[in-house]
Amino acid sequence: MVTLVIIVVVGLLTGIAIALVSRWFGVEPNPVEEEVRNLLSGANCGGCGFPGCAGYAKALVAGAAKPGACSSQCAGAAEKMAKLLGVAVVHKEPKVAVVFCSGDDMKATRQALYNGINDCRDAMIVAAGAKTCAYGCLGLGACARVCPFGAIEINEHRLAVVHKEICVGCGKCVGACPKKLIKLVPKSAEIHVHCMNPVRGPEKFKACKAACIGCGKCVKTAPEHVKLVPGAALAEVDYGNPPPEALAEVCPTHALRK
């Protein structure tokens, strides 16, 4: 009984003390900051480079940041913020995350059966995952779970796929992938080379029928849009000058695709 009373009394006293102190001495939050914060999405994705939406709002009010860095706020919200703060919007180029791997279960082979904890980072510890290709998506969804917007789906053939229309390019998944297969690329790019394995073509083709074998067909067709990665049997889209969607047709393994 005494136990109960003492815990309740100490808890109540602390609670009341905190309430009273914050009532009497609490600092009113800056109203402009509050308003700016309401214009942000509240997803706390960190895509702007500040610690959460509150951090960005604080930096905006302090003048240390410009409106337009938030990629997940509604259309027109950045303009409203700019009006509120009396500064100009600096739009950053919209980016999306892309999983640079095409090797789903239909195309890529597995070197082993992984029965452990259902997470890519755990699977990575055991002989770098079950995929034969050392650069293959493990498909256990570390990226999908970390995405605050639910933009990444593990498809039916166990490959992570980013939904471009939902992705805001915050970059959380980039750090979550133990294979480092996810990169942020400009949203304007239509097609990508979905392969990151630099080894010789025949070698990776044995492990994955969707690998970029480095044949150079795309480079020959459109040298201004695609280039070969130096020292690797791998093509890479030039994101400064992204290729048209039609170029995907020349790729024999369909590594170059949407």
Partner: peptide, 24 residues
Amino acid sequence: LQTIVFILAIAGIVQILEILLQRF
């Protein structure tokens, strides 16, 4: 009861200190 009561008290004290510091 000291462990649980102390945790409670310390958490509360830190909260109050934070509010007071921000103000003063």
